[in-house]
């Protein structure tokens, strides 16, 4: 049995040229807090960008793969999704 690789280990393999400003915005933290018990973005985001911290959603945009899932999958359409500014964001080396 191979040792299962964690998301942190996977993310470590990826190169990012992070911008200083986030391209992902939770529009209303209150919606996450009061209307969204599942916080499903913390599950389906392939880079575990979204982490719930007691009362607010922490958005680790630096590790974003720019796949767009959060924009489409947020049940409350509470995420504003843009591409990072030109030259910033994920850098694929091989795939």
């Amino acid at each position: 049995m191979m040792k299962a690789q964690t998301i942190e280990e996977k993310q470590y393999l990826v190169r990012f040229n992070a911008d200083t400003k986030s391209h992902l915005h939770v529009l209303d933290d209150n919606i996450c807090l009061t209307k969204c018990p599942d916080k499903i973005c913390t599950i389906f985001c392939p880079a575990a960008v979204y982490k719930w911290e007691d009362i607010r959603m922490h958005v680790g945009y630096e590790g974003c793969h720019e796949c767009g899932s959060c924009r489409i999958g947020c049940p409350h359409e509470n995420i504003r999704w843009e591409y990072p500014r030109g030259g910033h964001g994920i850098v694929f080396r091989l795939g």
């Binding site: 191979m2 280990e9 996977k10 993310q11 393999l13 990826v14 767009g68 899932s69 694929f92 080396r93």
Partner: peptide, 17 residues
């Protein structure tokens, strides 16, 4: 699947819609 990838080393991880 395991036997096909045995001994390989992950070098990049990607996600896409």
């Amino acid at each position: 699947i395991r036997p096909y990838i045995q001994g390989s080393e992950p070098v990049e991880y990607l996600a896409h819609l």
